[in-house]
């Protein structure tokens, strides 16, 4: 396949590239060409070859799937037969961390190597083991566990396997998300009675509340550019939408509107788009939207339950 770039002013060919491969990789060729154009003209890696890991119903079970960022080529990556939830990418795209229910009654945090299907259990503490998130350098896994009675945030050193508890209070703390520098963690806490988004340093110090508008703000996701934190905000009358807020709390924008119950925002690696799930009339599907609320697109169409999308890093 040959790709050319013309200058529409002069009709001159200004660049081109030839891709050679079997017909099965035509989509890949077009996506690679798109990424090369974006890289050439913006200096940033494009997102055309990024992927989204998500949860979908498979029989009565919820399993993990990976699809291209545009919804094409979904592939099942777990077949456990019960509940696998909240998948997240490793920074090098080789692994997925997620919550797996072990024999229905307890949860683990597992890690799956995509190329081989090999799997390890990273966390198996008492109670909840949820919302895993690897640090940008891959050296730490932040997650929430309720082994000490209520849900608290922990940080596991993946080299020494040592867990460290980061939050200490009687409320529920969960959903850690790393700043791109790895120096801070935003998270959900209901320590004030209702869930709100907080920020702390990666050692658990310097805790400060970030969201004040409304009585339900949760599921934060820190943009890879660092300038926004997306989260689920509850607006009147009990609508759950996607909002973004600057890490200093100064700017806040509601991104989505409408009747759907929106959840699980996750950023594209270029920080321009957000993927999320929306439940309408009992059916959940995955969408993406630009940060200004424009360009809303639905990207899953099959089945009745597609949720918890997580956008891969760029290649």
């Amino acid at each position: 396949m040959d790709g050319f770039v013309y200058d529409s002013g002069s009709d001159e060919v200004v660049g081109g590239k030839r891709y050679v491969g079997s017909t099965s990789v035509v989509r890949l060729m077009a996506h690679r060409f798109a990424d090369e154009l974006v890289f050439r003209y913006t200096g940033e890696p494009g997102i055309a070859r990024t992927k989204i890991v998500y949860v979908a119903e498979h029989g009565n079970a919820r399993e993990l799937f990976v699809m291209d960022y545009d919804g094409y080529e979904p592939k099942q990556i777990t077949a456990d037969g019960f509940l696998n939830l909240m998948p997240r990418w490793s920074p090098d795209r080789r692994f997925i961390v997620f919550t797996a229910y072990r024999s229905r009654n307890t949860q683990d945090i597992d890690i799956l190597e995509l190329a081989t299907g090999k799997r390890w259990t990273l966390v198996s503490m008492a109670g909840l083991n949820i919302t895993p998130a690897l640090s940008p350098d891959g050296n730490f896994l932040a997650f929430a566990s309720s082994q000490d009675g209520n849900s608290e945030i922990y940080k596991l050193d993946t080299r020494t396997k040592t867990p460290q508890r980061l939050t200490v209070n009687r409320g529920g703390d969960l959903s850690p998300t790393w700043s791109p520098t790895g120096r801070e963690i935003a998270f959900t806490s209901d320590r004030g009675g209702a869930p709100q988004v907080f920020i702390m340093s990666a050692d658990g110090s310097n805790v400060r509340r970030l969201t004040y508008e409304g009585d339900y703000n949760a599921a934060p996701a820190w943009s890879p550019r660092g300038n926004w934190i997306a989260y689920v905000c509850r607006t009147a009358p009990r609508l759950y939408k996607i909002c973004i807020v600057s890490p200093d709390g100064q700017k806040r924008v509601q991104v989505t509107t409408g009747p759907g119950i929106d959840d699980s925002p996750s950023w594209s690696p270029d920080g321009r788009h957000i993927t999320f799930s929306a439940t309408v009339d009992g059916k959940s599907h995955i969408y993406m939207v630009d940060t200004d609320g424009k360009g809303l697109e639905r990207i899953t169409f099959g089945g009745t339950h597609n949720s918890s999308p997580s956008w891969s890093p760029a290649l």
Binding site: L85, M86, L128, I130, S175, Y216, I261
Partner: peptide
């Protein structure tokens, strides 16, 4: 119920 986030509903 289905309202609210997946993660907070687990808590």
């Amino acid at each position: 119920d289905e309202r609210g986030t997946l993660a907070y509903n687990l808590v």
